[in-house]
Amino acid sequence: MKRSVIRLENVWKVYKMGDTHVNALQGLHLDIKEGEFLAIMGPSGSGKSTAVNMIGCLDVPTKGRIMLDQHDISRLDESELAQIRGRKIGFIFQQFNLIPTLTALENVTLPMIFQGTGEGERISRAKKLLGLVELGERIYHKPTELSGGQQQRVAIARSLANDPEVILADEPTGNLDSKTGSIVIDFLKRLHKADGKTIIMVTHDAALSRVAERVEFLKDGKIVKSLNNK
């Protein structure tokens, strides 16, 4: 049995909007093992992004526990959560979320600044990562000077900056056509296979979910179906 990296135990997320309550997550259980490739599927509004944000320590549950390496993260303060985000987790977003005023290279070095990595090391590592996603020629370009697929590859390089254990990708191909999308997926596959990263990917596309070893189906903030692809 493999070590569990992240475990969600009976996690609830309730948004209060005036008088109405939106239950984005309703008692979600999820156990993510080291080195596994997990896909999360489900209809819009089913709570996938909310779940991923919880896993990535961007958000805290209303109720329930999130265990990271057997530690309850609800006990951690904001700066400790930031440390975890910086070191252990790499995010890839549907909207790429690059900083528009920074070049590709600077975007990739950014996570390392917050870990206090020296400038020389930052730059050489960022160049290497951009080479890995085949953007070695475009390191001084701003996001607006790059295509969607290229921007998402910069985001992949950025997610790897601090060599995290876990990569979280929330609909990484949602804004891309199927061809460029599959290139992005190929990179994720490679990270999983070659580097043993734990990958959690949200997708709407059943075809893409087949690259994952396991698929969890979410509905109304709960797992309704699990599928093992192994």
Partner: peptide, 16 residues
Amino acid sequence: TKEIGIMKSVGAQNKD
């Protein structure tokens, strides 16, 4: 605001 969110998602602490 969005940039701040991005920086936080890549590990910026409040003090940063």
